[in-house]
């Protein structure tokens, strides 16, 4: 089974259970509809980074304090600021479904999340290939809101990337990204090659999460 279908099933709360055929068919329809509707876009900028002894992370002129991010970026020389979105059309698609068929709405919601992750993985691999020329290897991406990496870092991150202009990604006063199917993240680049850089929720400390892989 395709990875993104597996992921969508997980987001739908199936845990280790198999999805029934009808749900599976709806998932496939949802991906087909997303292929038509989504207008994925991404932007990135690469900065030198440093970690100070007192636990600050300095990337460009941004200064971050976060133990979880510090762990994620340990040993990195550069950091990639990354933003991606599926565009406002997907939000509208989900909203339409919410009015006519909630089952379809939750399936679209989960599939859009899986679609977005897949897109981010692909973009990250592209960035990774470019950096490999400089003998730098990417870590898993780390988003504001993970662990103790404060969600409010989204603001400077989006400002530096000029996300509104470059990919049409903005946020509300409450730090909620609009369009909703969007990601911002930091990706460390270190001279040491480690295992697969595309790693998801296994790295998270929240072990009792019901969506854990």
């Amino acid at each position: 089974m395709e990875r993104r279908i597996k992921e969508a099933i997980r987001y739908l709360g199936y845990g280790r259970n198999a999805a029934d055929d009808r749900t599976l068919a709806l998932i496939e329809d949802a991906f087909a509809e997303l292929e038509r509707t989504a207008a994925p876009k991404s932007v990135c900028r690469i900065f030198d980074m440093a970690q100070t002894e007192d636990g600050r992370i300095i990337i460009g002129n941004m200064e971050i304090r976060s133990t979880s991010l510090e762990r994620n970026l340990k040993g990195c020389k550069k950091a990639v600021l990354f933003g991606a979105t599926l565009g406002a059309g997907v939000d509208m698609l989900i909203r339409r479904a919410s009015l006519t068929d909630m089952a379809k709405a939750v399936i679209l919601q989960s599939c859009a999340a899986a679609f977005l992750e897949e897109y981010c993985d692909e973009e990250q691999l592209k960035i990774g290939r470019e950096l490999e020329v400089q003998k730098l290897y990417l870590r898993p991406r780390f988003s504001p809101g993970y662990g103790d990496f404060d969600i409010r870092y989204q603001e400077p991150l989006m400002r530096i990337l000029d996300c509104a202009k470059t990919i049409g990604l903005t946020m509300t006063d409450g730090c909620v990204m609009t369009p909703t199917k969007s990601v911002t993240a930091l990706i460390g680049a270190s001279p040491v090659k480690e295992r697969c850089p595309i790693q998801g929720c296994e790295a998270c400390g929240k072990r009792d999460c019901e969506y854990r892989r």
């Binding site: 739908l12 709360g13 999805a19 749900t23 068929d101 089952a103």
Partner: peptide, 14 residues
């Protein structure tokens, strides 16, 4: 009980 999942719950609701 974990034998019916969200999409099915909502299909039934619809």
């Amino acid at each position: 009980k974990g034998t019916v999942f969200l999409p099915q719950l909502l299909m039934s609701a619809e």
